[in-house]
Amino acid sequence: MTEATVETSPTSSGVIAKPELPSNGKADVLILMRNLWKTYDMGAEKVHALHGVSFEVTRGDYLAITGPSGSGKSTLMNLIGCLDTPSQGEYWLNGKNVSEMDDDELARIRNQEVGFVFQTFNLLARATALHNVELPLIYGGIPGAKRHEMAKQALAEVDLADRMMHRPNELSGGQRQRVAIARALVNHPSILLADEPTGALDTSTSYDIMNLFEKLHEAGNTIILVTHEHDIAARAHRIISIRDGLIEKDERIR
């Protein structure tokens, strides 16, 4: 497979001002996206997965992104999580212009600022729950003893203190996702992202996971999750609906 070559330079117009830094009266802006494009060059045709998405997320918000399959939800989430770079547009995360960063800087942002939860958990199969949770700390350069401490605490937060030494195949689906959530939380990121976190779980387990997200939100975490289930989206405080790579609706429900 050939590597998709995407332009990573932001718009050259330079008209976009740096977002206002939090002032007393204003809500604290954590994410700011301006006119974000993601284009896949498929040879003959160009696939615009996102064309011109702009929005802001304030610190402490709980946001659900919904939309039909193929509408660009995952593409957007990957951009927010700095796993991918936009073809065009500007993206500020926690006061840093992410759209201008190089590979190593992005790795650092992913490590420090973002906690990502995947639909399929993505745990290291042969590592214990504890080691899985420690992974971001390892790349964050945190020394052993402190790392254990932090990972244990994160596991306790998701009620898995008694499963630390279990490997993924010794855990239920819900427990695996909780390990993944602990891994996302362990570095105290400024934002928690989840792309269909309940997509691989049954209804009652999904419920537990959603309760956990709610608890984490109440504890002060900023959460963005992607879902196409209405009752899950309905538990967030704000819902963005996207269709064909564009924001169709952006409503606050709480």
Partner: peptide, 16 residues
């Protein structure tokens, strides 16, 4: 490959 992707997603750099 998938594991490498995950490691990168949680902050591993190329040199890591």
């Amino acid at each position: 490959t998938k594991e490498i992707g995950l490691r990168k997603a949680v902050g591993a750099t190329r040199s890591n």
